[in-house]
Design a protein around this nucleic acid. Structure first.
Length: 212
DNA sequence: GGCCAGGACACCA
DNA sequence: TGGTGTCATGGC
């Protein structure tokens, strides 16, 4: 069922191409990490505004973030919401990354346990960083995933690790599938299937009558 | 003008 | 262990 849903969503929505980066940040994976923290419970469009502010001010690189006053950083990332909390988190996270000498080395060596032990990074943010920045096969479970598959009757739990394990058991050994699947579930979750034209060709007609 | 978004954490019983 | 409050802007 899990693979079937993936195929249907991919055919319906097409590749989502996550994670979008601007090519202005080197390495691009660093922008993924920053975005992963800024997008916590926040619309991606607002995150893009915050990322743009950081780029325009030319302070998105780790050194600049570490040196910057937290209030100044908060001001720049304001559009992403929870800006005081996120500014503090982003600064501490940057210091954590640079303790591993370089972003590249962080990407190569960081473990899931280390990320989860960091105050401000929960399972979803950790797995997003691992999957989209580090290139590890780590399925990202979010509220949409839980809601969609619970309503479909495929799962009967809210437990993050249980759901993640179930997906990872069923998915092929292909990181592109992991990356695309999570993005597709977000796309589906954001879609109000009561509205045309989605409903007429909804890939998951059984649950299409409800707003999923 | 209300609702919610690509969460996480502290606090409490 | 589970429920609740807090953090907050901006699009729809």
């Amino acid at each position: 069922m899990i693979l079937k849903v993936y195929t249907k969503l991919l055919n319906h929505f097409g590749p989502q191409g996550w994670w979008p980066t601007s090519k202005l940040v080197e390495p691009p994976e660093w922008e993924v990490c920053v975005g992963a923290i800024l997008t916590q419970n926040t619309n991606w469009k607002n995150v893009e505004k915050a990322l743009t502010n950081l780029k325009i001010a030319d302070v998105i690189d780790p050194d600049s973030i570490m040196k910057m006053n937290t209030d100044k950083l908060a001001e720049l990332i304001k559009p992403s919401g929870f800006y005081n909390q996120k500014a503090e988190r982003l600064k501490r996270f940057t210091e954590f990354v640079m303790e591993k000498e370089s972003v590249q080395n962080f990407l190569k060596t960081v473990t899931r346990e280390e990320l989860l032990a960091f105050n401000g990074i929960g399972p979803e943010t950790a797995d997003s960083i691992l999957l989209y920045a580090c290139g590890r096969k780590q399925f990202v479970v979010d509220a949409y995933t839980k809601r969609i598959f619970n309503r479909m009757g495929v799962i009967d739990t809210e437990n993050y690790e249980q759901i993640r394990n179930m997906f990872e058991e069923k998915l092929p050994n292909n990181i592109r599938v992991y990356r695309e699947y999570h993005a597709l579930l977000v796309k589906l979750g954001k879609t109000n299937c009561k509205k045309e034209p989605v409903c007429s060709t909804c890939p998951l007609t059984k649950i299409c009558k409800k707003k999923i």
